[in-house]
């Protein structure tokens, strides 16, 4: 009996191979900059990091030495303020979307959150400037915190919602069936079941705003000296990297690389932690 399958025509064979080759090539081209950036960052950054960098404040132009200790502390302070504003609001909004979520209002909130996520960070910076800096008449870490907090809300709200929706309804019913009031059932049973996912969302939002520079330029503003008062202009790692990178001094370029390395290590650590936690299949076990 003759075989039913005809050999592929050469044209079809060639386009198929070409297509597979091209998409593999695309992957290589996308991964290349990542390798290049990380490689160069490590190469330049490790050479410039020393104890002084982590413990000293910037020296004036022309003097060598000095560091970014004030910027590291400032970043921690601004990010802390941002999280204080953004995390409760985001989680609260996410719970509402998931637990009481029906009707037009919820769709509107969901949609607005997604659109807000795409609003350029510099525009959020302008809003924080006109809301906080103009009435106060001075730049402050607080204003920077407001800007970053606003940027965290939509991400946290949407991931919290998603994670809560993965919690099976039987768990909610079991809690309510015991006679527990709704607020305790939601907080202590539903939210707790989804807590790993919710934390993941918060970490992702945190990692995203940790490197933001644009909204801090005219809210936290930067500062060459020590400052731990949230009501004063405050240095931040990304701003410091930016102003050193565009400066003409070699010494400052080195410091910019060191700062960048520290920033990226913090962010990659956060993202990898998230990845490890989520890839353990927590949600699958619960379901």
């Amino acid at each position: 009996m003759p075989s039913l399958s005809k050999p592929l025509s050469p044209w079809r064979r060639i386009t198929n191979v070409a297509f597979i080759g091209l998409s593999a090539l695309a992957s290589v081209l996308v991964l290349a900059p990542l390798v290049a950036i990380f490689g160069y960052l490590l190469y330049k950054g490790i050479g410039s990091i020393n104890l002084a960098f982590l413990t000293k404040i910037p020296k004036p132009v022309g003097e060598s030495g000095g560091g970014m200790a004030n910027a590291i502390i400032g970043s921690v302070m601004i990010l802390g303020l941002g999280s204080i504003f953004g995390v409760p609001l985001g989680i609260g909004a996410g719970i509402y979307l998931a637990e009481f979520g029906h009707g037009k209002l919820v769709t509107l909130v969901r949609f607005t959150a997604d659109v807000l996520n795409g609003v350029p960070s510099i525009v959020v910076g302008i809003a924080a400037y006109t809301m906080v800096v103009l009435p106060q008449q001075h730049f402050s870490a607080f204003a920077g915190g407001v800007a970053l907090g606003i940027m965290m809300v939509p991400t946290i709200a949407r991931t919290t919602e998603e994670m809560l929706l993965m919690v099976p309804n039987t768990i909610r019913e079991a809690a309510l069936g015991l006679g527990i009031p709704q607020w305790r059932a939601t907080l202590q049973v539903t939210l707790r079941t989804a807590s790993k996912g919710v934390i993941t969302g918060c970490m992702l939002a945190f990692a995203r705003v940790a490197g933001e520079t644009a909204p801090l330029l005219f809210t936290a503003f930067g500062n060459q000296f020590w400052n731990v008062n949230p009501n004063q202009p405050t240095a931040a790692l990304p701003i410091q990297i930016f102003s050193y990178a565009i400066s003409p001094f070699d010494e400052w370029h080195k410091q910019a690389w060191a700062g960048a390395l520290i920033l990226i290590v913090l962010i990659v650590a956060a993202v990898s932690a998230v990845r490890i936690v989520t890839s353990r299949g927590t949600m699958a076990n619960n379901a």
Binding site: L34, A36, I37, Y40, L41, A207, R208, A210, G211, E212, T213, A214, P238, I241, F242, A245, A256, W257, A260, L263, I264, I267, V268, V271
Partner: peptide, 10 residues
């Protein structure tokens, strides 16, 4: 996850 300012530096 790489911040914009690091892209700029690079």
């Amino acid at each position: 996850a790489i911040p914009s300012v690091i892209y700029g530096l690079w």
